[in-house]
Design a protein around this nucleic acid. Structure first.
Lengths: 338, 338
DNA sequence: AAATTAGATGTAATCGCTTACATAAATTAA
DNA sequence: TTAATTTATGTAAGCGATTACATCTAATTT
């Protein structure tokens, strides 16, 4: 055995005293190899520590057993649970997951898509629907199966595996309104290239418009996952003469930032002001006060996305979007209007 | 242009009116192609939306521009920041990162290693040092560069990019002892296959042994990242006749679990009991009371690991382990012994 | 102007594997 | 026993790129 030199089929074949074809069959369709040779080849594979070269295999078989996922960032727990579930389902099916991050940048996302396709990705998980048409054109031209997760729209343009951000936020806002709040503020990250935030804002607006005398003060935050910037936005809202009685935040991370800032400013939540989030990640139950938010079934979403892509990979063309339900979770940070 | 059929070098070459060699040079060493043909080929690539096939490229060039990372889980913020930084550095160097998760299982980790190597990974990031010798043998036989992150030992057996879990925990414990605590409990997850936890426990023990009359009650928790199991362990500790005055937790997730349970049981932290964590992830500052813990430079660790692997990939063989420093962070959850 | 050199491009072998097809061996049917 | 069928294995052609080497053209030197 030569150190550092990767063994190849030929090496295995020679050691086992069979042809490369038999080795290949042993690896891919063991049932077509007799018991006796299976033993011999198995031993040779073991002895050499042989692992098939992906490049050769992909080239010859035109199948990579690989899927790709492109997420905006890993720093943020929002995607972690879903992606973990996604990868577990794929792993069970013997598929390797390639992950890359785009930092909320469309050019980078496009580059990542190219790379992943080049690597042989047989399907792609994308977050949200907002991206240049040219990216979709590329996907269509290459005929790559993909699903859009973390959002769901009825436009029929894509296969979605997600939840209706608009409806979910609308529901939460309706609850808030029913609790008597009328002066409502919202801290939301950039909507540019982020359809989920866009939909959440629209959902809140829709609910508010239905109620006489209710109004929304939309405060934008430069980042979707910076608690401190959300804190800043919160502080600015507190400067106003006419203060809101509740602040809807576009996700839990921002909501926690607002709560922390409130604590610093000695403003008590929810006595002085109510705060809500979106996503129901772990910190929602850890922060004091616990955070009222929208619960999202991250794990099931990841599983469903994987399932759908696996079906598409198997050639099933008759697939439908999957809409998962969310629910409003009432916790300490939200209180009836006095 | 044919829908769904991936264009190949030949297609590009034909369209641009050059040979495949020239197309390949355009892609890999554009400076060896004349200005004029560069334009032609560039246009052809653009028009066809050509992306080189990874398999072919890897096979022919024997270089994959790919690295692998295997982490226990993504569900847990502990690895997210570090991996994110790791991938950013690699991306800047034009290297794709393949990630897979092992669920703290050694066989699965080994399978993942095989797969990643098969995919052409030119280097591997592994978490911690605890794994069967056979795995290391395999790595050595294949001559695959790898670094061990999230821990650092002086044994000289591997290239580490991490911090000294033993020393860090020892330092935290010394601080706790200096604050007058003598009855110390520790909630720690399984040490099996987890050298970091093992080292943290040993570090605490080492500090405690130095102080007359101080003693440690080690309570094990079935999981390293389940707040509720940690809560259970906390409850059991509170049943004891002789209660500890401080509980050291082997990481922040468990510490938060203990704090939550304390709140449920109406035990106040730190008035009734102090609690400390390890890692300094985001929740440490979010939870009430804020959590005293050990700060770990996750981002810098990921960057350093990437840097080291890139150097090894470039053929630099004279590399040394990198030890990053940690520091004890005092926060509300830890108080002087009355 | 001829000889030399440098630069740009093309030809074709090669990487490691799979698989269609051919062949041989073993089993069953007639 | 021989023919027909089934099962197991081998041979060799590709998959899509890179790259050593050969060739041709243009620039430079003498």
């Amino acid at each position: 055995m030569f150190e550092g030199s990767k063994p190849k089929v030929d090496d295995v074949a020679r050691l086992a005293g069979v042809s490369t074809a038999t080795v290949s069959r042993f690896l891919n369709t063991p049932e077509r190899v007799s018991e006796k040779t299976r033993k011999k080849v198995g031993a040779a594979v073991e002895e050499l520590g042989y692992t098939p070269n992906f490049g050769g295999r992909y080239l010859a078989s035109q199948t990579s057993r690989t899927m790709g996922a492109i997420i905006p960032t890993m720093e943020n727990a929002i995607f972690a649970k879903g992606i973990q579930a996604f990868q577990e389902v794929l792993a069970d099916a013997g598929i390797t997951l390639l992950i890359s991050t785009s930092s909320y940048d469309h050019e980078q996302e496009f580059e990542n898509i190219r790379t992943l396709i080049g690597q042989g990705a047989e399907g792609l998980l994308l977050i949200g629907t907002a991206r240049p048409q040219s990216t979709y054109d590329f996907l269509a031209r290459r005929n790559i199966p993909y699903v859009i997760a973390w959002n769901h729209r009825w436009d029929g343009k894509h296969l979605y595996v997600g939840f209706d951000n608009h409806a979910a936020m609308r529901e939460l806002t309706q609850t808030v309104l029913e609790m008597g709040h009328k002066d409502i503020a919202m801290i939301a990250g950039p909507t540019q290239f982020n359809d989920r935030i866009e939909d959440r804002i629209a959902g809140a607006k829709a609910a508010i418009e239905e109620v006489e005398g209710a109004q929304l003060n939309l405060k934008s935050c430069a980042s979707n996952y910076s608690p401190s910037l959300a804190g800043q936005a919160f502080a600015e809202l507190m400067q106003l003469n006419h203060k809101p009685s509740v602040i809807l935040c576009s996700n839990d991370v921002l909501a926690v930032g607002a709560i922390m800032q409130a604590r610093k400013m000695n403003i008590s939540v929810p006595e002085d002001i109510s705060i809500t989030g979106f996503d129901d990640i772990d910190i929602a139950e850890i922060v004091t006060p616990t955070l009222a938010t929208v619960h999202v079934p991250h794990g099931r979403m990841g599983q469903a996305a994987a399932g759908l892509l696996l079906k598409m990979r198997a050639g099933d063309t008759n697939n439908k979007s999957i809409k998962l339900s969310t629910n409003t979770v009432l916790r300490e940070s939200l209180r009836y209007y006095p």
